[in-house]
């Protein structure tokens, strides 16, 4: 009896001890995950009906507001560029030499056939600004201890009303995230893995997105290289840079 009680008690203690710190946890996660700027190369593996496709790209990002992505392969996508400034998004396609603004309903379309929409990539507000959070428990994920954080939107204009995050208690890296509808229905699940220490921060190199309502294997996102705090020239974040 005693042996059972102790872990439960300690869990309760842990929760009460950390409840008010949920925000603190998220802030530490943000500090860990975001940076002033970064350059990374990634591949996105999309499992389609017929075949899986791998799309590689290089992204330059400053803060959360500005990012510039250039697709490297496959040949068909090579040279396609995407620029995001605040809440605007442009795509440039070299074959047509057109820069097209993605707006309105187009934002809800999937990116390159993946389980991600443009909109999913657009929301750049800090999690702590739009969600109230609370630690509701602990759970081991992939052999690591995590806090379970329940996030509830405190503003109305968010895509997901509720989120649940599993955060590594040591490294302050999310290992799993679930996105819920207002009704509480699970819509999407994100699994993060291959956490590596890069330039002193812990960073998950692999992310799997899965739309839970739809059949399919989801979309894998693998970061092949990442560099933080580089000097990125400002002109990259301009529409003129798209055409270069």
């Amino acid at each position: 009896m005693k042996t059972i009680l102790i872990p439960i008690l300690s869990t309760c203690l842990l929760i009460s001890a950390t409840a008010q710190d949920a925000n603190e946890i998220l802030k530490r996660v943000e500090r860990n995950m975001s940076s002033d700027n970064r350059i990374f190369e990634s591949s996105m593996i999309i499992h389609g009906n017929r075949a899986s496709r791998t799309i590689t790209s290089r992204t330059y990002a400053v803060g959360d507001k500005q990012s510039f992505t250039e697709y490297l392969s496959p040949a068909r996508e090579q040279g396609t560029k995407m620029l995001k400034l605040e809440n605007q998004l442009w795509i440039y396609s070299p074959s047509t030499d057109r820069t097209i603004q993605i707006s309105g309903h187009m934002l809800r379309q999937s990116v390159m056939g993946s389980d991600l929409s443009y909109e999913d990539m657009m929301d750049d507000r800090k999690i702590t600004e739009i969600y109230d959070s609370e630690v509701t428990g602990t759970e081991p994920v992939d052999g690591r201890n995590t806090w379970i954080l329940d996030l509830t939107a405190k503003v109305t204009d968010v895509a997901y009303h509720k989120r649940k995050m599993w955060i590594d208690t040591e490294r302050y890296v999310p290992l799993r995230e679930e996105l819920f509808a207002k009704s509480g229905q699970l819509l999407k699940r994100t699994s993060l893995s291959e956490v590596k220490q890069i330039e002193g921060r812990w960073f998950p190199m692999k992310v799997i997105y899965k739309d839970m309502l739809k059949q399919g294997d989801g979309t894998e996102f693998v970061i092949t290289s990442v560099k933080f705090n580089q000097s990125i020239p400002d002109y990259i974040f301009s529409k003129a840079a798209l055409k270069q």
Binding site: D157, K182, S183, L213
Partner: peptide
């Protein structure tokens, strides 16, 4: 059957 929609604010919602 599950349906999904987005409310006035664009928030995802789903229900049976």
């Amino acid at each position: 059957v599950t349906i999904q929609w987005r409310d006035n604010q664009g928030t995802f919602d789903a229900a049976e």
